[in-house]
């Protein structure tokens, strides 16, 4: 497997002076193509910051980050936008579909923003929705879909351009457990079928159970990075999930 993302001693600070918050304190990480990886950790540990950096939504203050062969720090805002548009798919916690567009148009928009000039955009958008089980809902607007259906549209939108990487920020946080599990199984299938790399940030044990690799972040540093066998994974993830929940409860 070739390396998709290589992060070396990356640091990120928000704010300045006494109010400065060091979100990442020297992270080193390599993500290979085709991984199905979870970034976990308590609130404020730097999960979203790391996810934003890998998704090229933000740029690190120090260190080196190479993504798909590009030194991200050297890319212009336009270059970053182009990389995001063509090679990275996004799935958000709040779905973030465009409310005035139908399901098919929302998916088609991703192709259009990626600069796809092929004439079969409508067909490909329809096929992507068909793949996520929404072939009969092409002309529904987001407010006519359930939360799970909306997130499926978001998955189709992220995958339709066949990106190298899908970045998903708490994708199941606004879904009930059954729907969340169904959406995750869908993403895992896409990972297996298409070889697309998935990177999640989550607290959700449902995702951690399905992940092949779990990164545990604490205080802006990677505390644990393990690639599990399936049995180990299930056991370990359940243990971590329980620990995590207890930890979060302690935070309250």
């Amino acid at each position: 497997m070739s390396v998709l993302c290589d992060i070396k001693d990356v640091k990120k600070v928000y704010g300045s002076g006494p109010a400065a918050v060091q979100a990442l304190r020297g992270v080193n990480l390599t993500i290979d193509e085709g991984e199905f990886t979870v970034i976990s950790g308590p609130s404020g540990s730097g999960k979203s910051t790391l996810l934003n950096l890998v998704g090229c939504l933000d740029v690190c203050d120090e260190g080196v980050m190479t993504l798909l062969g590009h030194d991200v720090k050297k890319l212009s805002p336009k270059g970053l936008a182009q990389l995001r548009a063509e090679r990275i798919g996004f799935i958000f916690q709040s779905f973030n579909l465009i409310p005035v567009l139908t399901a098919r148009e929302n998916v088609e928009l991703a192709l259009q923003l990626a600069g796809d000039t092929k004439g079969d955009r409508v067909k490909r958008a329809s096929e992507a929705l068909d793949r996520v089980g929404l072939g009969d809902y092409l002309h529904r607007r987001p407010n006519q879909l359930s939360g799970g259906q909306q997130q499926r549209v978001a998955v189709a939108r992220a995958l339709v351009k066949e990106p190298a990487l899908v970045v998903a920020d708490e994708p199941t946080a606004n879904l009930d457990s059954n729907t969340g599990a169904a959406v995750l199984d869908l993403m895992r299938d896409m990972n297996k079928q298409l070889g697309i790399t998935f990177l999640f940030s989550t607290h959700d044990p449902l995702i951690m159970v399905r992940a092949r690799r779990i990164l545990l972040l604490r205080d802006g540093q990677i505390e644990d990075d393990e690639i599990k066998t399936r049995s180990d994974l299930t056991r370990e993830v359940e243990r971590k999930a329980v620990q995590e929940m207890l930890h979060n409860l302690a935070d309250y």
Binding site: G55, L57, K78, A81, Q82, R84, A85, E86, F90, F92, N96, I98, L109, A110, L113, A114, G115, R157
Partner: peptide, 8 residues
């Protein structure tokens, strides 16, 4: 979101 997806 649209900017994230590549809207210039």
């Amino acid at each position: 979101v649209m900017r994230a997806m590549g809207l210039t």
